[in-house]
Design a binder for these strands. Structure first.
Length: 467
DNA sequence: GGTTATGATTGTCA
DNA sequence: TGACAATCATAACC
């Protein structure tokens, strides 16, 4: 628009002034009268041709351009154009604008640097991963997720750098192209180096805004990655069946005081270090054990009846295990002390308990003892279940039968107690809602001073064997 | 797709 | 600091 304006003003005013003022024009212009008018007309035609170049084909324009470049009036016209342009101050606007760094861009850069996307390749993102892991309180158990996280981060990093490189290359190419164009144009129109610089600045700003979009989307991708991999809620996986069983066994075998100590938790965590379901390959941590017990206590307390069956199941299960262990112990004892006495009540019972499923064991136990529980010393078995070896493969000391040749029914002390547990589930304070204190808590049900079983085996993880 | 189960988080309290 | 209660978010099941 300005070019046209300039041209028009050139034709109307400036040029005539230039012509009459004796600027660097051909000497023939100093002639007078009608000849002057003819020259003006000539210049007007030239300018008209210049203006018309844009409407012509490339070849036509090229040819015309060459003709004009060779025209004798060209230097004079060009200098006039330069003068006008300088006076009108059209050039170089905003060259030095926006010199201050964009805070948004700075934020993005900082974040990408912190996340290990930009910056040095070495250890890319590992610091961020480590920090995130520390924040989550995780340890080696998160290594798999973290390696996955790193892999994804590396992928993002690679895409980011590739795209960035592309943009930079495109920017350079475009800048070079524009500069060449401007240099070429500067032969026919006044273009100062500052203008070229200004144009380069504009191009760079345009490209940097595109880069900012790239950085922004990269940041978003990293955020999504973080939330997916490092937000524990998102990565929730159910524990494996075995792990749950281990935890449940402990819980129900310590129902009077289901508060494992740190050591017990560690032991449980170790014992549960079976891969959680869905093959994530993680192990259960101490804090997960704590969570599990916290949840379990609350949910058990909230709906005891619902857990009754489960409690029954684990009771029977543990009882059977205990009975088997007792039988084995007795067998060993007999083998070593009185090999001449091959038959003992335990052996038969042991065989009877070689059942396939826990349920069938449970049913058997129930059918065996429910009706005749009176014949077994339930009183002595009140918390027998508490002392049963549940998970650590530890001691059965409290389960050692009295090897005193009592009648068979009473000899199967452990089994009787197991039945007693079954009974207790219905009536014993330890396994009834009454086992909880008035506030629905366990703390008063088993005081710390009384929970340590003297018979607890060394190394046992039972931290809170009941009273 | 709705419901239930369950692991994890958060805020509060002792 | 650990336990509890409420809640969230997801998995699992129908």
């Amino acid at each position: 628009m300005d070019e046209t304006h300039i041209m028009q003003s050139l034709v109307g005013v400036t040029l005539s002034r230039a012509v009459h003022g004796g600027m660097a024009l051909a000497p023939s212009l100093d002639h007078q009268g009608s000849e002057d008018d003819g020259r003006k007309q000539d210049i007007g035609d030239i300018l008209h041709q210049i203006m018309g170049i844009t409407d012509q084909s490339l070849d036509e324009a090229q040819a015309k351009k060459h003709g004009l470049n060779c025209h004798r009036m060209k230097p004079a016209l060009f200098s006039v154009l330069c003068e006008i342009k300088e006076k009108t101050g059209l050039s170089i606007r905003g060259v030095h604008e926006d010199e201050a760094p964009d805070p948004q861009l700075m934020r993005l850069d900082n974040m990408l640097l912190a996340e290990g996307v930009s910056g040095p390749e070495k250890g890319g993102g590992s610091a961020a991963v480590a920090a995130a892991a520390a924040a989550l309180g995780g340890g080696a158990e998160n290594s798999i997720e973290h390696s996955d996280y790193r892999a994804k981060l590396a992928q993002i990093r690679q895409i980011y750098h590739t795209e960035l490189e592309k943009y930079e290359q495109a920017c350079n190419e475009f800048t070079t192209h524009v500069m060449n164009l401007l240099r070429e144009q500067s032969r026919t129109r006044p273009i100062s180096p500052k203008e070229i610089e200004c144009m380069v600045g504009i191009i760079h700003r345009k490209f940097s805004s595109i880069q900012m979009q790239l950085k922004q989307s990269t940041c978003e991708a990293v955020m999504i990655l973080r939330s997916r991999f490092l937000d524990a809620r998102r990565k929730r996986r159910n524990f494996s069946k075995q792990a749950t069983e281990v935890l449940n066994e402990y819980f129900y075998s310590h129902l009077s005081n289901p508060y494992p100590t740190e050591e017990a938790k560690e032991e449980l965590a170790k014992k549960c270090s079976i891969t959680v379901s869905q093959g994530m390959g993680s192990t259960i941590t101490v804090s997960q054990v704590s969570n599990w017990f916290g949840n379990k206590r609350i949910r058990y307390k909230k709906n005891i009846s619902k857990f009754q069956e489960e409690a029954n199941l684990y009771a029977a299960k543990t009882a059977v295990t205990a009975a088997q262990a007792v039988a084995a112990a007795v067998q060993n004892s007999q083998d070593s002390s009185s090999p001449a006495t091959p038959n003992h009540g335990f052996q038969l019972k042991d065989e009877e308990f070689q059942l396939d499923t826990t349920e069938s064991k449970n049913n058997l136990l129930t059918s065996m003892f429910t009706a005749s529980s009176g014949s077994f010393s339930l009183s002595s078995s009140g918390d027998m279940f508490m002392s049963m070896p549940s998970l650590n493969g530890g001691s059965y000391q409290r389960m050692q039968p009295n090897n005193t040749g009592q009648p068979e029914g009473e000899n199967i002390h452990g089994i009787g107690q197991a039945a007693g547990y079954s009974e207790a589930l219905r009536g014993h304070p330890l396994y009834s809602p009454n086992g909880l204190n008035g506030n629905g808590g366990w703390h008063e049900a088993a005081t710390p001073s009384s929970v340590t079983s003297p018979a607890e085996a060394a190394g046992s993880i039972h931290s809170d064997t009941s009273n």
